[in-house]
Computed example of a mutant assay.
Amino acid sequence: MHNSKSEMPLLEIPRSNRIVDVKIIDTTFRIKDGPLADFMGPVIEGQEKLNVGGFGYLITHISPSSGSGKETVQKVLFDLGPPKNWKSDIPEPLAKRISTWEDDGAVITVEKHISEVLEDGGIKLNTIDSLIWSHAHWDHMGRPSLFPSSVNLIVGPSISSKFAPGYPENPDAPFFSHEFSGREVSELSFESSNLTIGGMKAIDFFNDGSFYILDAPGHAVGHINALARTTTSQDGSNDSFIFLGADSYHLGSQLRPNTYTPLPSSIEIPSFLPCPCPGELFERIHPLPVGGDPSLTPFHIIPEKSVAINVEDAREVISKIQAFDADERILVLNAHEWNYYDVLDVFPESANEWKKKGWKEKARWRFLGGFQGAVDLTFTDRA
């Protein structure tokens, strides 16, 4: 391993003393033995299937008291997971397409709507101000129609113009028209934004530096990410953040290792044998071309044939997220990575103290646990 670490680029996150509270929601969505090759490649022998869950995020923003002496509380839901009865709650052509995964051996389960999860956790749906779709894929849109009509729906660029009013009026729409109707739907635009964070166009959602929406094109129409400030410090240098990566990547193997975060020479991965594990074992299964450095290159990339609508843009977004991920102030999460579910405190608990609890260090290399079969095969081959 060469482990020649690159100098970190400047993310240029604006200073602020305002934070939001972030709660990570288990949407109860699981896919076992899903089609990994649809999302990442090259496929490594012994690790051919995708096992994922689904996260949503409850963002609570409290504005300082005004002249009335009352604080203003705003609650925003970023990503809703899939609907519980997805085979009937999404348009039939889309449901049929997803069902082919089951034909190939995938097991898809959803125990609850996210609205039910919230209510079970003591959140009244009429206290939610806005729902934000990271993009219009079936496993992120949930059922907005289960929320009161007072709850706004916020979508990324071109979602409304491409898919409104919904199915069946628009046969290309991945959602029924009743999910849009009867509520305010706002489409974000980054064209007028002069704010950039980590090379990504940004919108200061609450206008106080506590929560940013980031333009993250490539995976799907109108795909967005977010950056939440979770703690502040006197000079700003020790602020902490949670980056919400949605579907920009699906497993940490698409982010790491890289020139900012090299593969360690020894790694502790719970339930993995041997443990601690020499990094060299993972170098042996790395699907790199001859001459590449497996200690500085992610195990997977977004393949040319994938669900991404623009592979070049999607890969560029991942390269930008790598810089956020390498920053010790920032916990990078996405919508589906389940390797470190046991590391996190989920709703109704707050995630704001993640840094103090060491989640980043515990979670960083957990994705390698999914390579047990591939590593075992290399030992079998050698034997």
Rank of each mutant, 00 (worst) to 15 (best):
M1R: 14
K5S: 11
E7C: 10
R15M: 09
K23Y: 11
G34L: 05
L36M: 08
M40F: 06
G46F: 09
K49N: 05
N51V: 12
L58M: 14
H61K: 15
S63P: 00
Q74V: 08
K75I: 02
V76D: 01
D79C: 15
W86D: 00
S88E: 13
E102Q: 15
D120P: 00
I128K: 06
I132W: 02
P148G: 12
G156H: 03
I159W: 00
S160N: 02
E169S: 14
N170E: 07
N170T: 10
N170K: 15
P174W: 07
F176G: 01
S177N: 09
E184G: 11
S186K: 14
L188H: 00
I197T: 11
K201I: 00
N207Y: 03
P217N: 04
H219Y: 05
A220E: 01
H223F: 11
A226P: 02
L227P: 04
S240E: 05
L244Y: 07
Y249G: 01
P257R: 08
T261R: 12
S265D: 09
S266C: 10
D293P: 05
P298A: 14
F299I: 06
S306T: 13
V307P: 05
V307A: 11
A314G: 10
I318E: 02
I318V: 14
S319M: 07
F324S: 04
D327Q: 01
D327V: 13
D342Q: 09
K356Y: 05
E361L: 11
E361C: 06
E361T: 08
F371A: 01
V375P: 03
D376L: 14
D381C: 04
R382S: 11
